[in-house]
Design a protein around this nucleic acid. Sequence first.
DNA 1: CACAAATTATTTGTATACGAATTTCAAATC
DNA 2: GATTTGAAATTCGTATACAAATAATTTGTG
Lengths: 174, 174
Amino acid sequence: MTADRNPLADVNASLRQLMQLAQTRSKKIRKETGITGPQLLAMKTLADSPDLSISELARRIYLHPATVVGIVDRLEGQGLVERTPSKKDRRQVNVKLTRSGKGALRKTPVATQDSVLAGLESLPEKKLARLAANLAKIVKVLEAHAKGPVPKRRRGRPRKEESAPKKRRGRKSA
Amino acid sequence: MTADRNPLADVNASLRQLMQLAQTRSKKIRKETGITGPQLLAMKTLADSPDLSISELARRIYLHPATVVGIVDRLEGQGLVERTPSKKDRRQVNVKLTRSGKGALRKTPVATQDSVLAGLESLPEKKLARLAANLAKIVKVLEAHAKGPVPKRRRGRPRKEESAPKKRRGRKSA
DNA sequence: CACAAATTATTTGTATACGAATTTCAAATC
DNA sequence: GATTTGAAATTCGTATACAAATAATTTGTG
């Protein structure tokens, strides 16, 4: 289906399916453990290296710090992680697993440890390795392209975008 | 970087980066055209086959109908698509591009036509085709696994999840 | 030390994205 | 024809996910 007509569109569709599968799996894991995929990923990262700052944690899981704040908020709400103000730099916050968080992580099935891609375990080692290398290469190409890709020509003007009246913002004004 | 230690984790990281790149690109396109990636994908699909129902459109872009409702809402708010009640089945709604929508689609740069993966255009045709085939295969494996993958053993009980008092719901009660 | 610049976490706003519940219809069954 | 069953769109709730703005702090420069 769709044949080799337009490889780009095919890639697009595949990635879309992939994301959907990941999300479905994430929901399933959530039902079973109460923890979502991104939350699990964050916890796993914290298990390997405790006391990460929000920024560092965000870097390691390739997410925006603003997103990680929300994830940590919810994990903290469940008592799985803990925020500690850093003594070195009072802007920073150190995040680490609580005892309960470590326990929850131990109880997650092995198959879900690697987040959303449990299905790939059935592939032979060699294929899997090749796939990993392939993907890494693709990401590299896209990354390079995203950085400085001659924009060629801009056609079509940006639409206007009214901005609502701004309100209070910023850090927790304790 | 991470070497061949754990291919599964590598794949996971790559996919994560991929999704992030896609999202970043989507935001960029939005700044330039006022249209986001998913919105553009929906419009492109409607350009190929007008008067799709919400469900059918959702199927074609691999999204949940509930998600597509929101996307169509926003596109309709911008006057780019139009909802028409179906005469055959009064439950259905036919969505199609407006004249303005067609114009906007024409004005989007060619590079962004294929949504979020513009960078891949620099790859040689052959590589691209191989990549497409690879991804399709992977998706198939994951899909099969998601359907019926002997669950092995369930360990760890689901957490409780309090439910708030329900409110009014359902279709637009005109 | 004073002050500008950079960093850090956070909040707000917006857009996905899905599941569950719900309403409106249509179709099948009795 | 009445009832049940099913499908379609929608709403609500929740969780990502990012950009921009903001407050608190640190660092660099004079």
